[in-house]
Simulated scan of single mutants.
Amino acid sequence: MILAIDVYYIDNRAKSVGVLFHHWTDSTSAIEQVITDYQDNVAPYQSGQFYQRELPCIMSLLDKIDLSKLTCIVIDGYVHLDEGKIGLGGHLYHALNKTIPIIGVAKKPFSGNSEYLIEVLRGQSKHPLYVTSIGIPLTNAANSVQSMAGKHRMPDVLSYLDQQTKLFKHEE
């Protein structure tokens, strides 16, 4: 199973959503399960320390999942930052005792980490996705993201995930 995770914030509250699917080429109709978790009193955003805000939310969501069934976790963000420093994905990998490969998929570039990523162009978009990874070769990670279902820049499963987190705006 592959798990894709995203987190959305409103003030000091967060909604984490995970979608489980079997194959990189699965469409949204093949999503096995959607898992949600809510957190209050989330740490404030700190530049360069984003993982301190997001990692506790992700770990809480992971408490609801049988981790032994996961072959990979996809996050919205980076595994490596500038000069090889680890980002959210790297911190998650270490928090999971390096047992589950992590792929980071980001929409915006991060200065200084170009040697740790592969730009993936999808659909007709001229703007790449920035793919980083740990526990899996970077080329394999980029090929996996490239193969995901969908005609647009963002794979369908990841777009669906993003929509599910943003529903939080209407749940209050």
Rank of each mutant, 00 (worst) to 15 (best):
S144I: 00
H127Q: 14
G77D: 10
H127I: 15
G87R: 01
Y116P: 00
R122V: 10
Y51K: 10
N143L: 14
Q52G: 05
F110G: 00
P101M: 10
D63C: 03
P56D: 11
K108S: 08
C57T: 06
A142S: 06
I136C: 02
L67P: 02
G104T: 14
L62G: 09
G77V: 11
S68V: 09
F50S: 08
L138P: 05
Y51P: 05
I136K: 05
C72W: 05
L61P: 00
E83S: 05
L96C: 06
L96H: 07
Y116W: 08
A149V: 04
G84A: 07
I136G: 00
A141Q: 03
G135W: 11
L121G: 09
I134H: 01
Y130L: 04
T139E: 15
I86K: 01
V145K: 03
M59D: 10
T99Q: 15
V74S: 01
K108V: 13
V79T: 12
Q146E: 15
N113A: 08
I102F: 12
L61C: 04
G135L: 09
T139S: 14
C72T: 15
D76N: 07
Y130H: 07
S125T: 11
D82S: 13
M148R: 01
C57E: 02
G89W: 08
L67V: 12
G123P: 07
H94L: 13
G90I: 13
S114K: 06
I118K: 08
L62M: 10
F50V: 14
A95Q: 13
T132L: 00
L117V: 12
N113S: 10
L67S: 05
S144Q: 00
G135E: 14
I75E: 12
R53N: 04
A106D: 04
L55N: 11
L88M: 15
I75W: 10
A106V: 05
S147H: 02
G77F: 04
L55D: 12
L70M: 08
P109Y: 12
I134K: 00
D76V: 05
K69P: 02
L92Y: 05
I75M: 10
G123W: 13
L61Q: 03
I100E: 04
Y116N: 06
V145F: 09
E83N: 09
Q124K: 05
Y51C: 13
G84D: 09
P128V: 14
V145D: 09
D66T: 08
L92D: 09
L129S: 05
N140C: 08
S147F: 01
M59W: 01
V120E: 11
G90L: 10
M148C: 06
C57Y: 01
E83Q: 02
L67H: 06
E54V: 05
